[in-house]
Design a protein around this nucleic acid. Structure first.
Lengths: 337, 337
DNA sequence: TCTGATAATGTGAACGCTAACATAATGTCA
DNA sequence: TGACATTATGTTAGCGTTCACATTATCAGA
């Protein structure tokens, strides 16, 4: 019973198959020039022994761990979950492993520790999901020896970052309101430290300017309470505002709640459009019109770029992701003031 | 420029510090019997060279990867995100790495592939987050050589699983309604293939029976539309139902929406309590009373048990997790029928 | 001052694999 | 049928650690 159950190695397989260990290695890595006959002999030997290649030995000799790190903000919001799944799947598809480290994006120490941790396992590349500007610099300062891809950061090089389509999404959200006939449209923005905020503001502004309308932006963050607060104080009558583009669904929810309490009907008096399409958005009161970004695809693309960097293959330059307009009940023709 | 930039190894450090490589190894693993003087010499040498231990070499010789796998359902619902963060953090705290594989819990092939993938990297243990019964058996069949911890599955051994507190949470939710004075309380359950459903039903039933009340359960799933459908058809007047315990917040949201459309005021005519406390619950119409499980703590505990198994240390037997009652506006005294 | 314990450090091998090179089998063409 | 390319396989070394086992320094007690 105390028999040592050493896992089978390449030599065990070789012996059983009647070949050299190198031939086994060749089969594993499907190299050229192997007789079909030998290949199958080796394969059935592997099968029989339940052989699993030893990743450590492989990593040691090739100096490649086949692991990519994901540095992710532990601020839980709606997108990342699906994104992580997509990233993991894409990595696996390319024969890579994904290993994540959660960090507090506001704490440089935490970032450094996360990176240190990932370094120890020997990552070949790093994908960073952080929505805050400071962290990008922190990461860039700390990581210089392996490729890094930033998700949703305003990096110059498209090669080094993957973007959600904030600008285009915001533009289209605004255009939706304009196309309904709204003239006075305000934007409640996300927090300025988050990357997603600025392009949403620009997309809104550009759409307004193109339609010769006056943009007006209120500073917010991503939270329901903030939306509620802004909604409580927003001046609507004198300025004849008939529509609001909220930088995310939570803000929109807070706004709707406050405005209805103040007696403004939605969408009869005020139209509201959000951004993100959180699962609950369809069941808000009223169901929220919003922009649905493709988080999963974003994750996939980011990982694809990462693997492209690592293997030095040409990155398939994908088109910009564009959020989809989901029209529900919170937007309608403008009220007659 | 073409100079090879080999990473420093233990010998480089040894040379610089003027000791043998083994002494360096001892410092890294802080073994006994090292002069304080030598230790610091070695440490500054490591610092100077930017030495990072090679995980692969280490894993090869010790036959321990320091990696645990997480097999996670790619059905994205509210809990797992925070849970994953917590698991990763707990793993890191113990010097371990966490690496996840997303799988479709309904597809045994997908599960097998996920496990195969994790096996390749050499995981020392596996944490399984799947809410469906079938997958547990599939996993148990496939993994026999390393410890497995199931999250939220009805496993006999508490050592092998970590539970959310579904039973106790459901009991307390029901007791909350009872304590308000409700007599006719129905439960809209989750899907039977999910583990969380059954204990929530039992918790509800037991609370009802203790209060000498008649339990009545409607079969549902976790979705808003299903809650809405059930809400549209639920008979309330003849049976004098005044309160509903929904198995999760999404069902509750759907229910509330349908009931209000039918003219039933909440909470004046019907009280509703949910389960999960999704971030939006506080801003539903009306804000939802619900049970808040501690997902993060669940993840932490699960990982703690995992590491306990691996290192053969005694698992700190933690108390059962109990969801917290969050009272908002959707529950009140029963209506006078 | 010698002895024997204990503290502190050193030496060689092995982990399982792939890279690089060497060799053997097979096929092709004059 | 020999010469030479091509295909197919084998041999040896080394990746960076830790382990198991020396070996050397240090210190107390007789």
């Amino acid at each position: 019973m105390t028999e040592k159950v050493r896992k089978p190695n390449i030599y065990d397989v070789a012996k059983l198959a009647g070949v050299s260990h190198q031939t086994v290695s060749r089969v594993i890595n499907n190299a050229d020039y192997i007789k079909e006959d030998t290949r199958s002999k080796v394969q059935s030997a592997m099968q029989e022994l339940g052989y699993v290649p030893n990743a450590a030995a492989r990593a040691l000799v090739t100096a490649k761990s086949k692991i990519v790190g994901i540095l992710v903000s532990d601020i839980v919001y709606h997108g990342p979950a699906g994104m992580m799944h997509a990233m993991e799947k894409e990595a696996r598809r390319g024969g890579y492993f994904a290993i994540s480290a959660s960090v507090d994006p506001l704490d440089n120490d935490s970032i450094a520790q996360g990176i240190e941790h990932l370094r120890r396992v020997g990552i070949e590349g790093l994908v960073v999901i952080t929505p805050q500007s400071d962290s990008v610099q922190a990461v860039e300062r700390l990581v210089k020896d392996i490729p890094v891809v930033f998700i949703d950061s305003p990096h110059n090089s498209t090669e080094l970052s993957a973007e959600l389509g904030n600008y285009e999404g915001a533009k289209r959200a605004t255009e939706h309101l304009i196309s309904l006939g709204h003239k006075k449209i305000v934007h409640v923005a996300g927090p300025s430290e988050w990357f997603d905020s600025a392009p949403r503001v620009s997309g809104y502004s550009d759409a307004m300017k193109s339609a010769k309308l006056e943009p007006k932006v209120f500073a917010g963050d991503w939270s329901v309470p903030t939306g509620y607060e802004i909604g409580k104080n927003l001046e609507l009558d004198q300025s004849k505002v008939t529509a609001i583009f909220a930088a995310n669904d939570h803000l929109a929810l807070g706004l709707m709640r406050a405005l209805r309490q103040r007696g403004y009907d939605i969408p009869q008096r005020v139209s509201i459009i959000g951004f993100d399409d959180v699962p609950e958005a369809a069941f808000y009161e009223p169901p929220l019109t919003t922009m649905r970004p493709d988080f999963a695809e974003l994750g996939r693309v980011a990982m694809e770029k990462m693997l492209g960097h690592i293997t030095r293959e040409a990155t398939l330059s994908s088109d910009e992701l564009i959020p989809e307009l989901i029209v529900r009940e919170s937007t309608a023709l403008p009220a007659n003031l």
